[in-house]
Write a protein that binds this DNA or RNA. Structure first.
Length: 206
DNA sequence: TAGGCCATCTGGTCCT
DNA sequence: AGGACCAGATGGCCTA
């Protein structure tokens, strides 16, 4: 995952790398890397990040010269350099695109990528406002949503306790607790999923 | 090695 | 027509 994080941080806007990619490719015949797959300039094939490093070193190219080119594969296929072999396509080539159709598909892919990056950015921002332990493993998307739901519920109940005058007196049974109300929306499975993490968090933050 | 999580591609659908 | 959104498929990386 470290590799992914490294790659995803290279460019929030992959299009910005286009000129750089083309420049480097023309000038130095460098190995090229997409954010997901790694591409070598000599053989257009998907490589893992480790494979890319190994291949680069074997070819005498330093790792530092590996260039992130998120849309490299899209762009080369647009130019027809590496059009998908219909015979090798999962559907036997029935859905292969050429010319303008291919261009639209490539553009749609780029939009979809941007959209998902925006979504992931929103997830990151949401994670940043959810209390968690330091050195805690990054919350998954699912856990982030669950934790956010629980956190909001807890805050709402806390706020309700502050606002309602009767909650200022320590009389038992006058205020809602986390055992009822909105927190009950979580199913047992849902609570089980995030329960451990939330227990750790709530112990520190409340 | 299996399972979890993720990024990306893709085609379909809906909306402007 | 083109963009946004969605869900399924695929493959890579990481961890237990």
């Amino acid at each position: 995952m470290a590799a992914k994080a490294e790659l995803s941080s290279w460019s929030e806007y992959p299009e910005d790398f286009t000129l750089l990619q083309q420049h480097h490719q023309q000038q130095h015949n460098l190995a090229h890397i997409s954010s997901k797959a790694w591409i070598s300039s000599t053989s257009i094939r998907a490589l893992s990040i480790r494979d890319a490093h190994a291949a680069a070193e074997a070819a005498g190219i330093s790792r530092e010269k590996l260039v992130p080119v998120t849309e490299f594969t899209d762009r080369v296929t647009t130019k027809g350099m590496t059009e998908t072999d219909p015979a090798k396509a999962p559907d036997g080539g029935k859905t292969s695109h050429f010319g303008p159709q291919r261009h639209r598909r490539v553009a749609a892919n780029a939009r979809e990528r941007r959209r998902m990056h925006g979504l992931n950015k929103a997830f990151d921002e949401l994670r940043s406002v959810i209390p968690s332990l330091e050195n805690e493993k990054k919350l998954s998307k699912y856990d982030t949503l669950q934790m956010a739901q629980i956190y909001i519920t807890e805050l709402s109940e806390l706020l309700a306790g502050v606002v309602h005058p009767e909650c200022r007196s320590p009389r038992p049974g006058t205020c809602s607790s986390s055992s009822d109300g909105e927190s009950s929306h979580l199913s047992d499975a849902e609570e089980g999923q995030s329960g451990k993490q939330w227990q750790k968090v709530s112990a520190n933050d409340f």
